[in-house]
């Protein structure tokens, strides 16, 4: 009997580990995402110790979002002009009023802000690998409220890195992987 309980516990634990965390994504169930045609991607915040990584991640995100051909992404120069016109103080965390003003200035249906939490090499003992962690928010322009939020972490040290070394995947690859995951989260909502 006790053996049965142990096996069941192990299976349950494994199944829990395989499931995607339901807490990493939020989507507004009442929102019609099909009405969003044009988005402005604001400059991301950088919480890492590396410089300009927010530009790199934003660049990849904008390109991948455009490449889906589902949304028109406003060019970064135009977004910069909009930020300047509405005098946005913190582009990584705009208020609802600021989102509304920016949306009008840029003729956008929604605004995306984001934060890069981790980027670069991580070490554990002798093993090293690359890691990235990003969080994004999509805000509707009409009301200024958050209608989607998602986050992802890719890379990191796995068993292969610990046993064989090698330094993990290149930074560009895991950035694309992470951005693709976020885009899946966005469109699957």
């Amino acid at each position: 009997m006790w053996l049965k309980k142990i096996i069941l516990s192990v299976i349950l634990a494994l199944l829990t580990a395989c499931a995607a965390s339901p807490l990493s994504t939020y989507h507004d169930t009442e929102m019609d995402f099909g009405s969003i045609q044009t988005v402005a991607v604001l400059p991301f915040a950088n919480l890492t110790g590396h410089t300009r990584v927010e530009e790199r991640v934003r660049d990849v995100f904008m390109n991948m979002l455009l490449a889906t051909a589902s949304l028109y992404v406003i060019p970064p120069g135009e977004v910069a002009r909009g930020i300047s016109r509405v005098q946005l103080v913190d582009s990584a965390a705009p208020s609802a009023e600021e989102v509304q003003k920016l949306g009008v200035a840029l003729s956008a249906d929604a605004v995306i802000s984001g934060v890069v939490r981790e980027y670069g090499e991580v070490r554990s003992g002798t093993a090293a690998s690359n890691v990235i962690s990003i969080g994004l928010q999509l805000m509707e322009v009409q009301t200024g409220r958050v209608i989607w939020s998602g986050s992802t972490t890719k890379g990191g040290i796995n068993m292969q890195d610990r046993l064989l070394g090698g330094g993990g995947q290149p930074m560009n690859d895991i950035t694309e992987e992470a951005v693709l995951d976020l885009i899946h989260q966005l469109f699957n909502s």
Binding site: P43, P75, P76, G77, E78, V79, A80, R81, S84
Partner: peptide, 10 residues
């Protein structure tokens, strides 16, 4: 002045 790229008026 191209701040982060070119704007549409430019």
């Amino acid at each position: 002045i191209m701040d982060d790229g070119i704007s549409l008026p430019n």
